[in-house]
């Protein structure tokens, strides 16, 4: 009743259609550009996996008996210190300055750049197209109100001062589509499509750290010093305490089936805590009593949950 229907036929629907089609084309072009997934490099994979192995050992050590835990702990500590898992052994001189010579590093950079280009180029082209062809008129009325400050952004090209902010130009329709079509693309193309904003944000925060094929890169883009990381992990490993999950399983079983009162477990916990703090006070141990109390509390919580 207020706008010419020709605008609807020739601007509104075409812009939306173009954005949907460009999104689909971009997805398939990205798939074609990336080609087949690269084979993982054995040495790089070994590096990352060794680190994960140490972390898993620390977190789930309660599933192993004491000797198995100690054996793995000492083996991993020794390996980290000697650097058996490093991709480039410590002795060899790798010129750190000239990174462009390392082919794997270049691959990682190219992948990141490709992804950026595939996102930025269509956006810029479509924005330019809209600004060139569809500027200077009101396209649609937004059903919800916005503040005055949005007026300059949403009514670019329309030189009125009194029209309220709900009447907007084509560029704001472009932005609406940009955000609103994300979920539509997920519906059409499945979850791994190239236009996913979430994936972009994740990619920006973990730059270079994708498959094990590429070398490890830190947040600044410099290859991280794996040896230092290994040494740090070795420190963590040395501090790890072993806590066998089957320690008092007989008592727990009896309590579970009601043959013994639950107070038996609680007494054991407090006795163990008292003994641990006494020994910590007597002999100077490396783990602070706060950590000890925390592990004892975690122990009792786990026992209560498992029972």
């Amino acid at each position: 009743m207020l706008l010419d229907p020709a605008i609807r036929n020739w601007v509104l629907i075409p812009i939306m259609l173009v954005m949907v089609l460009v999104g689909i084309v971009r997805h398939y072009v990205t798939v074609l550009l990336n080609g087949t997934p690269k084979k993982a490099d054995l040495k790089s994979a070994r590096e990352t996996k060794a680190l994960q192995r140490a972390a898993i050992l620390r977190a789930h050590g309660s599933h192993l008996p004491e000797q198995a835990f100690q054996a793995r702990k000492s083996y991993l500590s020794e390996a980290f210190e000697k650097g058996t898992y490093l991709k480039d052994p410590i002795g060899s001189n790798k010129p750190k300055g000239n990174l462009m010579s390392d082919p794997a590093y270049v691959e990682t950079m190219m992948d990141g750049m490709k992804k950026n280009i595939m996102n930025i180029v269509p956006q810029t082209v479509i924005m330019g197209w809209i600004n060139f062809f569809f500027s200077g008129f009101v396209l649609i009325q937004l059903p919800f109100p916005l503040t005055i400050r949005f007026k300059s952004m949403l009514q670019r090209g329309i030189e009125t001062q009194d029209m309220d902010v709900t009447w907007v130009s084509s560029l704001s329709w472009y932005f609406l589509n940009l955000f609103g079509l994300q979920s539509v693309f997920t519906l059409i193309l499945g979850s791994g499509h190239a236009a996913d904003a979430m994936r972009d944000m994740q990619a920006m925060s973990t730059m270079g750290m994708g498959a094990a094929a590429g070398p490890q890169m830190g947040p600044t883009g410099q290859p991280q010093d794996m040896h230092k990381i290994f040494l740090g992990e070795k420190e963590n490993l040395d501090l790890a305490e072993h806590e066998w999950g089957l320690d008092d399983v007989e008592t727990r079983l009896l309590v579970k089936y009601g043959k013994k009162p639950r107070s038996v477990l609680v007494d054991k916990r407090t006795k163990a805590l008292a003994a641990a703090s006494a020994s910590a006070a007597g002999a100077s141990s490396s783990t602070p009593p706060a950590a000890l109390a925390a592990t004892a509390a975690a122990r009792s919580k786990k026992a209560r949950r498992q029972v």
Partner: peptide
């Protein structure tokens, strides 16, 4: 919240087509 954005898109679209255009 993810659905809110596509809700706004389609809301604006249909509102425009039916109530604003001739």
């Amino acid at each position: 919240l993810g659905g809110l954005l596509s809700y706004i898109l389609f809301w604006t679209l249909l509102y425009g087509i039916i109530h604003v255009y001739d």
